[in-house]
Design a binder for these strands. Sequence first.
DNA 1: TAAACAATGTGTCGTTTGTACGCACACAGT
DNA 2: ACTGTGTGCGTACAAACGACACATTGTTTA
Lengths: 241, 241
Amino acid sequence: MTTVSQKTVKQLKSENRDYFQIAISVDCVIFGFENGELKVLLIRSDLEEYKDHWTLLGDLVKPDEDLESASYRVLKERTGLMDVFLEQVYTFGDVSRHPAGRVISTAYYSLVNIKDHQLRLAHNQLHWHPINEINALAFDHTKILNTCISQLQDKIMEHPIVFNLLPEKFSLRELQSLYEAILGTKLDRRNFRKKFFLMDWLVDMNEVEQDVPHRPGKLYQFNKGRFEGENTEASKHAQVV
Amino acid sequence: MTTVSQKTVKQLKSENRDYFQIAISVDCVIFGFENGELKVLLIRSDLEEYKDHWTLLGDLVKPDEDLESASYRVLKERTGLMDVFLEQVYTFGDVSRHPAGRVISTAYYSLVNIKDHQLRLAHNQLHWHPINEINALAFDHTKILNTCISQLQDKIMEHPIVFNLLPEKFSLRELQSLYEAILGTKLDRRNFRKKFFLMDWLVDMNEVEQDVPHRPGKLYQFNKGRFEGENTEASKHAQVV
DNA sequence: TAAACAATGTGTCGTTTGTACGCACACAGT
DNA sequence: ACTGTGTGCGTACAAACGACACATTGTTTA
């Protein structure tokens, strides 16, 4: 019985190169919110097998970069995004998941504000897709996407993360609309207000919406101060280098 | 910009062998319950750097085996366990996490009934460690262990998984003691009973404990029927081959 | 044999949390 | 001025949660 604990990697390499026949990649599910819809950033597949299919943004992990760094790199290279919310979800490692060879992929999801980064998209084959209008993605990316959506749905009621999808200032209607888009349900406006004020996640900016064709709503900001020092899931696991 | 979606793995191999310098392993956090304590199955490290340290059970993933299959294999090889609860938790991929080389490791946790499998342990350098008496583990295994414990704590109130740690029939006292061991808190006996009967997770066996030095408690069984067809987290992600 | 002991088994009551819903107020457009 | 639409606030009822007291059953001991 051979384990990585009992032998050095160098020994293993000389014994059996087969152990290094697996490539590892990261795939990023980048969520955005626009026109009351939850959207995902996708790119057209260049593989012949998946012609006309869309795929998640991903890349192979380099030997000298942390797994998490790789996902940040993908984000930066493709979208120009730097300091965004990013969290690991699950690692997909079935032998046959990728037609071109053995690639194990770790999925991350990211929450970004679409408005802030619209310019970079024109340069690439990138496109925002409403999650309700997505057909078949390439590889097992549909499964990856669904896993990330489930994870997101499970988290938003307990953890204040959806603010990453909104502009600095937002109305309660926008916030509720976002929750409805993520959860796929309708929520009661009055109970929604009550709940969020009680949780003390919001700061009243004493400003109101502009240029709306109805009574303007108050604008709020995420109460960052209340959560200072709290770590994201990702940083909890991150090793101090 | 090179992505795995745009080029085949074969092309990449010829271009740059560096992409295949990363080994991938699985590490299993195997939980058991004995004498009112939550325990983890550990093995002595054989690495010189970590002499006298304990480590989790792990092994490198083979090129032709699924990631999940690798963790099942580790379990089977080390403990003889076959059909046990196993679930992926997180993938640790920092460059410097393993002193012997670049190894990315996916952590799984498993829940087993210690009593059923005590015989196999003598053959190996294995030992059950109470989670409250664990000092420094080798590598980043302390971090991995803590991540798995957190995950376990988060799950047991929503999902009926702790039954994997108990014998077929058990008393409510044992069940509560297990929850207390996992959560690290004391619970109110009456509210605990009420909650579990309301959840309808238990089936009254109309039997009582034997050979206890006090009034024997009723024995219950996990209400498997109520959860038929429901998948574990692992099987939700498993690819149909 | 009876009292002391230990652990099981059950109910109550007040608080908190969640959900459904009624209604007044403010702004925009006609 | 009137109407439509959305904001802002309060009430009422139901379910879940937590603290707590007392009766029951079997073992041990005086």
